[in-house]
Amino acid sequence: MTARRESVIEPGQTDLSPQAFERLAQYITKELGIKMPEGKLPMVQSRLLRRVRELGLPSLDHYAAYFFDSPNQDEREHFINSVTTNKTDFFREPEHFAFLCGTVLPEFSAGRAAGRRFQVWSAGCSSGEEPYTLAMVLAEYAAGDAAFDFAILATDVSTRVLKVAHEGVYDQAKVLPAPLELRRKYLLRGRGENESLVRVSPRLRAKVSFHSLNFMADSFGIRDAFDAVFFRNVMIYFERSTQEQVINRMAKHMAPGAYLFVGHAESLAGLDIPFRPVRTSVYRKAGGV
């Protein structure tokens, strides 16, 4: 038998055994609600490989063993950070922002109780592009309506993306989908070696508060009643039954008549939830109006 070289992953060792994958997949589904059919094996493999190298483990199967044997929860965070899909963009699915500013906000302004702030929740905010887009749109609206004020809660389960979001620093190329005018107003350009970077202005950053939150938790620990929730491109990874549970839990934190925005590839049809469709991928909670 040849001696195994430590922390070098041999070609054959990059494969997870079906048993190890099964175990990790079950864990992901249970902890995050994300479904993990066999087809996701290559994805899980490639995403975990980096972590395996960091830890100097000889193979992915060793990692699985290490993960389940770890006495503390440290590895859990790394694991969650590795397996979540965080693709996002500024002004992604722009129809929603048009609808927000053309319909939802004027409606809110017209019917608002004095002094009430417009509260939005970016649920599954990833690296912050969505809540900052919301912040720009709402700040723009506020500029035309002195009585209007807003607050944004942004949550995600991945601490890695939350950190990026909190920093609010992005590549120039990343912010191109935002209208030029808004970029000029709300983004600061990097200098010197940061020339290719931009940072969200402090004023805007102050409008967004970031928190870690897992949709699978029994209670979200939220006291506010939101007027709009952006829950986009998250539940696409969930089982139907999980979607229903999460949305029902979410509904408890929404004001009557509040709007729920979901991704364009997502549909709530067939779910037993207190919402009715308003237009493509926009729903409204029962009550209120």
């Binding site: 129809e95 364009h264 590839a265 549909s267 709530l268 049809a269 067939g270 779910l271 037993d272 939830i273 919402f275 009715r276 469709p277 237009r279 493509t280 991928s281 729903y283």
Partner: peptide
């Protein structure tokens, strides 16, 4: 139950 389905096509 959400029953009505709105076209997913974008215009």
């Amino acid at each position: 139950m959400v029953e009505k389905v709105i076209s997913m096509k974008r215009t």
